[in-house]
Amino acid sequence: MTILIDKDQVIAGPTLVPAAHDLARDAGAELTIGLVNNMPDAALKATERQFMKLLLAAAGSRRIRFHCFSLPSVKRSPEAKWHVESEYSNLSDLERGKFDGLIVTGAEPIAPELDQEPYWRDLTNLIDWAKINTRSTIWSCLAAHAAVLHLDNIERRRLPAKCHGIFDCGVVTDDSLTRSAPAPLKVSHSRLNEIAESDLVQAGYQVLTRSEEAGVDVFVRQYASRFVFFQGHPEYDALSLQREYLRDIGRYLARERENYPRLPVSYFDAPTEEKLIRFERKAAHQRHPALSNELPALNLRADIGAGDAAAVLFRNWLRYLGADADASMSVR
């Protein structure tokens, strides 16, 4: 399914675009971008909306033809499978089309190693295709880890504790992608593993941003396509980390996980953190799913700036994608 994103449009979902918009190719410069959305079922629809809103905020007056895909080998519930089959384009259409840019998300791991995942062959085929068939591709979170493993055999490393929260990241390399970026960039991270900066540099990757607490954030490598890697989640909205944290509390209370989740870093305000610490103590003694009904009201810090840094980075990414299109328009 094709969606046309422009500055006058409110994006609610991938089906809510008037058919007439599909005829507006000659109204100005356009970019064709695909999202290969492999996120878990619970986050599937939220992820497509978040990326559409992020692109809408970054596009300015430029129009974007936006296509959603998902790897067919990602395991889905019947409901999520129906959504993908009825609302998304077939992955085979990706190879037949001409895409300026591609965004690829991670999937929920179910195997001990990435190269043992059921979707591994589909994903590596996509990586190889994107190298020569896009102007630039973004690999987000687990997809970034999978891509560098396939491309350069760089293994990710297990963290002693989950990297989860809003982290201040600084620009360490001058690059068009980070031009006019706020200082610091506040970025959402949510992962159990990391890629070591030393491994990336040794293999020829260029690190653009990093956090003292979370490590490498954005890094790049040039092939025929410019590959951009995010260890974090640029698409996350203000409540994404809260939803994950509450999900993990629920799994702990239901004894689906052994350890109580840590508080997201620099996310909740101080009074909320105090309430949640007291709730954790209670949960350790009264571990039962019904206890989730006693969770306190949650308030976020006022300075989390969710999405602000990502909007700048994606605006610069779209400018990179559109450089050739703008040049061709200027000589008409």
Results as ranks from 00 to 15, higher is better:
residue 181 A to D: 02
residue 157 R to C: 12
residue 164 H to T: 12
residue 146 A to M: 14
residue 180 S to F: 15
residue 149 L to N: 03
residue 149 L to V: 07
residue 203 A to V: 05
residue 184 P to W: 04
residue 194 E to C: 07
residue 132 I to F: 11
residue 157 R to F: 11
residue 119 Y to F: 14
residue 144 A to R: 06
residue 167 F to W: 05
residue 228 V to R: 02
residue 141 C to Q: 05
residue 166 I to R: 15
residue 122 D to H: 11
residue 225 S to W: 04
residue 160 P to R: 05
residue 137 T to Y: 06
residue 229 F to G: 04
residue 119 Y to G: 04
residue 170 G to R: 15
residue 193 N to S: 14
residue 152 D to S: 14
residue 136 S to T: 10
residue 120 W to A: 08
residue 210 R to F: 04
residue 105 T to C: 10
residue 127 I to H: 07
residue 129 W to E: 02
residue 196 A to N: 08
residue 203 A to L: 04
residue 104 V to L: 10
residue 118 P to Y: 08
residue 116 Q to I: 03
residue 181 A to H: 07
residue 143 A to E: 02
residue 133 N to E: 04
residue 234 P to W: 01
residue 122 D to Y: 08
residue 183 A to K: 13
residue 195 I to C: 12
residue 169 C to W: 00
residue 103 I to Y: 08
residue 189 H to P: 01
residue 111 A to R: 10
residue 201 V to P: 02
residue 219 F to Q: 08
residue 202 Q to K: 13
residue 147 A to L: 01
residue 153 N to A: 13
residue 221 R to T: 09
residue 132 I to H: 15
residue 124 T to E: 03
residue 207 V to D: 01
residue 109 P to M: 08
residue 107 A to K: 06
residue 131 K to P: 07
residue 167 F to M: 04
residue 173 T to H: 10
residue 175 D to W: 07
residue 211 S to T: 08
residue 109 P to A: 12
residue 216 V to G: 03
residue 216 V to L: 06
residue 163 C to G: 04
residue 154 I to H: 04
residue 103 I to A: 06
residue 152 D to M: 02
residue 230 F to P: 07
residue 137 T to L: 06
residue 136 S to V: 03
residue 127 I to A: 01
residue 135 R to F: 01
residue 231 Q to P: 02
residue 174 D to C: 01
residue 187 V to R: 06
residue 182 P to Y: 05
residue 155 E to H: 15
residue 160 P to Y: 00
residue 134 T to W: 05
residue 211 S to D: 07
residue 234 P to C: 01
residue 124 T to G: 14
residue 166 I to T: 11
residue 138 I to W: 12
residue 142 L to T: 08
residue 232 G to D: 09
residue 120 W to H: 08
residue 218 V to D: 00
residue 138 I to C: 13
residue 157 R to V: 15
residue 207 V to G: 01
residue 233 H to G: 09
residue 151 L to T: 10
residue 137 T to K: 09
residue 208 L to M: 09
residue 105 T to D: 02
residue 146 A to Y: 02
residue 156 R to T: 08
residue 195 I to L: 14
residue 139 W to A: 10
residue 206 Q to T: 15
residue 107 A to H: 11
residue 103 I to M: 05
residue 202 Q to G: 03
residue 220 V to T: 12
residue 231 Q to F: 04
residue 228 V to C: 06
residue 139 W to V: 05
residue 108 E to H: 13
residue 207 V to N: 00
residue 181 A to R: 03
residue 116 Q to M: 10
residue 133 N to V: 04
residue 180 S to C: 13
residue 222 Q to F: 09
residue 180 S to G: 10
residue 204 G to Y: 08
residue 229 F to C: 06
residue 171 V to S: 00
residue 210 R to A: 12
residue 108 E to A: 14
residue 134 T to N: 04
residue 200 L to P: 00
residue 186 K to W: 01
residue 141 C to T: 01
residue 229 F to N: 03
residue 161 A to Y: 12
residue 197 E to C: 06
residue 213 E to L: 15
residue 188 S to L: 00
residue 226 R to C: 11
residue 132 I to S: 14
residue 210 R to P: 06
residue 226 R to I: 05
residue 171 V to N: 05
residue 171 V to L: 01
residue 128 D to K: 14
residue 204 G to W: 09
residue 131 K to I: 11
residue 208 L to H: 03
residue 212 E to F: 03
